[in-house]
Simulated scan of single mutants.
Amino acid sequence: MRGKKTILLSVALVLCLTAGCETGSGNPTDTERPHQEKAAAEPGTPVRDLTSAEEVEVDRAEEELVRRCMRREGFRYWPGPVAGIAERKAGGYVVDDVEWARRYGYGRSFDIAAEKARRSHPNITYSEALPEKQRVRYSRALDGDFDDTLTVELPSGGSVRTPRTGCYAEARGQLYGDYPTWFRARKTVTSLTPLYVPRILRDERLVTAVTAWSHCMKDSGKPFESPDDIRRQRARLTKGMSESQARKAESALAVTEAECSRKTSLGKIARALEKDYRERALHEYSEEFTTYQRMRMSALERAGNL
């Protein structure tokens, strides 16, 4: 079946439909999952997922704690850009929010802002202007010592590691209460996608929904076989356009995608399948998942007290 062949290529589902998929300020050096230690979160802490607004609050608090830490180390640090609520909707498997699509398209403005920050954020220009020895000190103060790391094997195979020290580690330890336990739980929960996503991609309910979506897109004058088909062609579709033309074109296409997703329930079906399969995968790691949620709730409380 042609539709089935297409949906099997939809690896974007791995990245953005999962409830454990995270966005935020982040640390580009994160390759971490530490040894298990006693969880700092109290047993009575409420257990639930954070809302997007709450995630924003926690991420901003982390950046503020990093700033304070770097100041103690003798360096300036400007809190990095934190993805807002609207930005956290970007990059999903399928766009199904018509108003969001009309305003943001495929998140082109977010991509541009992120690229600009990577090139010219004050932290970049500041560190690059430091003398070489100071620049090395700055990097170690921020990222930690890569000769002293936490390492762990992931449920899906392979291993990850991260420095035990540095201002990123300190800030997260302050927020979550126990840095090693936090990353053990986080990396366990958020690295499970390879265990269940292939099953979602083979599920006939998703295959059928994508086929219906594709027919809707064709009837609307946008002949694409799947949401991934749009993602693969996105750069080509706007090649040679001015920035304003590209934004307008992407917005129009995203709106059509969202309308067809609503008509065929593609987004709703994909999310429901992800929830079902993910819960099954988490069954074996229920303790880590509970710890993960509790520590996030604890971080939210601490963020509100900064």
Rank of each mutant, 00 (worst) to 15 (best):
D178V: 00
D178K: 04
Y179I: 03
P180M: 10
T181Y: 06
W182Q: 07
F183C: 04
F183W: 11
R184H: 13
R186N: 13
R186Q: 14
K187P: 01
V189E: 00
T190V: 09
S191G: 06
S191D: 06
T193V: 08
P194R: 01
P194S: 04
P194F: 02
L195K: 02
Y196M: 01
Y196T: 00
Y196W: 05
P198K: 00
P198W: 01
R199M: 15
I200F: 02
I200D: 03
L201E: 01
L201N: 06
R202D: 15
R202I: 10
D203K: 06
V207I: 15
T208R: 12
T208W: 10
T208H: 10
A209Q: 03
V210T: 10
V210W: 00
T211S: 11
T211V: 15
A212H: 11
A212S: 09
A212L: 11
W213K: 08
S214G: 03
M217T: 03
M217D: 04
D219W: 14
S220A: 15
S220Q: 12
G221W: 10
K222L: 15
K222M: 15
F224V: 09
F224W: 15
F224Q: 04
F224R: 08
E225F: 12
E225M: 08
S226M: 04
S226W: 01
P227I: 08
P227V: 08
P227F: 06
D228Y: 13
D228M: 15
D229F: 07
D229I: 08
I230A: 04
R231I: 12
R232F: 05
Q233Y: 12
Q233H: 10
R234P: 00
A235P: 04
L237A: 13
L237R: 15
T238S: 14
T238H: 06
G240V: 01
M241W: 06
S242P: 04
S244E: 14
S244T: 07
Q245R: 12
A246H: 03
R247S: 14
R247F: 11
R247A: 13
R247P: 00
K248M: 12
A249G: 04
A249S: 11
S251H: 08
S251E: 14
S251V: 02
A252D: 08
A252Y: 09
A254D: 01
V255G: 02
T256V: 08
T256D: 06
E257G: 03
A258W: 00
S261T: 07
K263E: 14
T264I: 10
T264G: 04
S265R: 15
S265G: 07
S265N: 14
S265A: 11
L266M: 14
G267T: 07
K268P: 09
I269H: 05
R271L: 12
A272P: 04
L273I: 05
E274N: 13
K275D: 13
K275P: 02
K275M: 08
R278E: 14
R278C: 05
R278D: 07
R278A: 11
